[in-house]
């Protein structure tokens, strides 16, 4: 696969994962479903998974960059599988609502698995002796769009998580802790 094609695929990968994170933000703010601590860790894994493709866009495609994304995907799979197992026995309840019969943590596990397969495929198609060691300028449209898109999403996640949890997140969040505290409405 040529370096230019690899960069295009990496760009699409970033947009895809960014889309998933935008969906989770819509569910939080549009539908009022607050994320649990495990959901937040899954979001973190999604963000870190985009770092590999972002580094590929900026510094050329390298195996080391893909490795960062694979580690993040494995971390995300571990967390989402834990949450699936928590609720897998019928009658043990669930967290949040379902989309096409699957809960969001199950969808997260599916996305992490697919992402890991995609990264493995891109690694397989990557030539072993790549000569693409250029540093691409920040003014490159693909780099600018991908970095600004993910930067905005991650900054939103920082603020949303801080408003919801402060420094310590409750197991079953029901409100924005910091907002209630500042208004003097917190229980107890």
């Amino acid at each position: 696969m040529s370096a230019e094609w690899a960069r295009k695929l990496n760009f699409v990968f970033v947009l895809g994962i960014g889309g998933v994170l935008c969906g989770s933000l819509f569910i939080q703010f549009g539908l009022g479903d607050l994320p649990c601590p495990l959901c937040l860790l899954q979001r973190l894994a999604f963000v870190l998974m985009t770092l590999g493709p972002l580094l590929n866009l900026r510094f050329g495609v390298r195996q080391r960059h893909y490795a960062v994304s694979m580690l993040a995907a494995l971390f995300g799979m571990m967390v989402s599988m834990r949450q699936v197992l928590l609720h897998i026995v019928p009658g043990t309840g669930h967290y949040g609502f379902a989309v096409i019969d699957l809960h969001l943590y199950t969808w997260a596990f599916v996305f992490f698995t697919v992402a890991l397969l995609v990264i493995a495929l891109m690694l397989m198609l990557h030539p072993e002796t790549s000569s693409d060691d250029r540093v691409y300028p920040q003014s490159d449209p693909k780099i600018k769009i991908a970095f600004v898109f993910m930067g905005l999403i991650t900054a939103t996640l920082v603020v949303a998580t801080f408003l919801q949890c402060g420094w310590q997140c409750p197991d079953n969040p029901t409100s924005y802790k910091l907002v209630l505290n500042s208004l003097g409405l917190a229980a107890g």
């Binding site: 973190l44 870190l48 420094w167």
Partner: peptide, 20 residues
Amino acid sequence: MTTILFLLALLALALAWWGK
């Protein structure tokens, strides 16, 4: 704790943007 982890992720993105 999760807030700090997201801040670290944001820092990683920023460092990549700045060429580090």
